[in-house]
Amino acid sequence: MDKTPAIATHGLTKDFGKRRAVHVLDLVVPPGIVFGYLGPNGAGKTTTIKLLAGLYRPTAGQALVFGHEVTSDRDRVQGMIGYLPGDFTGYADQTGGQFLHLIGSLRGGVNPARVLQLAERFEVDLGRRLGTLSHGNRQKIGIIQAFMNQPPLLVLDEPTQGLDPLMQREFLALVREVRAQGQTVLLSSHVLAEVEAVADQIGILKDGRLLTTLTMEELHAGARRSIDLTFERSVPEADLRRTTGVKDVQVHDRTAHLSVTGSTADLLRVAAPHGIVRLVTHETDLADTFLDFYENGWEDSDAQRLSEGAVGPTPQPSVLG
């Protein structure tokens, strides 16, 4: 398969007046993967997606989809994208079937059998007008229109909102299927748990800056673990506190409770000479790691370590005016 990145942005920047929504974004999404695009509300996820979909024009930099520049080759790029907006509504007075037929025709025709199969799978009635559907059922129509003509790139803005857990699972299964067929999926979300199950890679965005991109393995490696160490005699508390990656040391009797980020090699090297009687590790939820990013963002040492090098300049202090 072609090695051209499905998505590549170079210094992509978007300002709205004085507000900078996306800040010098350099993002590369290889083809054939599921990329989780994560960030808190207002981080610039939707802006990036609209830049990729050719709905916004960048203030600076460029975005390429399969090597085609979005701005100069807009219609071709738009023809390669299955797009689900974050606020999908469709036309209230059209039935699901009419709507999908219209969008399918604009994309140059779509296999009706594929549409029916997707509708059956998501248990949505194509004969009902969109205005009469519940939010979740309308969202399913949105998902179907994005997937129905099997575009090489799917750009989905918070696709699972409004779906019940069963349908979320169905959606994730569909994402895995299209990846198996070589399609690329960019999935935005503000919750890690949503993308954790399918993503091969994630990118974390905050305040318009890409903090880091990680493979899922790297993310797991960066997860913080809490560990209980029980020593033969007394706890070498001072030594433990000095060890890299170790935090939140609490001592009860001969047991130290602490948390480690990343590798435990250093910790074990320091602790071993003191005679470890018992070692218990609790793998913390990945969500906690992720929350660290949100709360502490770029300033946090864990985040810096994960990002493997500088990503962008520090924020400029705002000018008084």
């Binding site: 709905l55 797009y83 509504t89 036309y91």
Partner: peptide
């Protein structure tokens, strides 16, 4: 304003 224009444009339609 209804948010439906996006869907018409993110197609090969110019």
């Amino acid at each position: 304003e209804a948010g439906t224009l996006d869907l018409l444009l993110v197609t090969p339609l110019s």
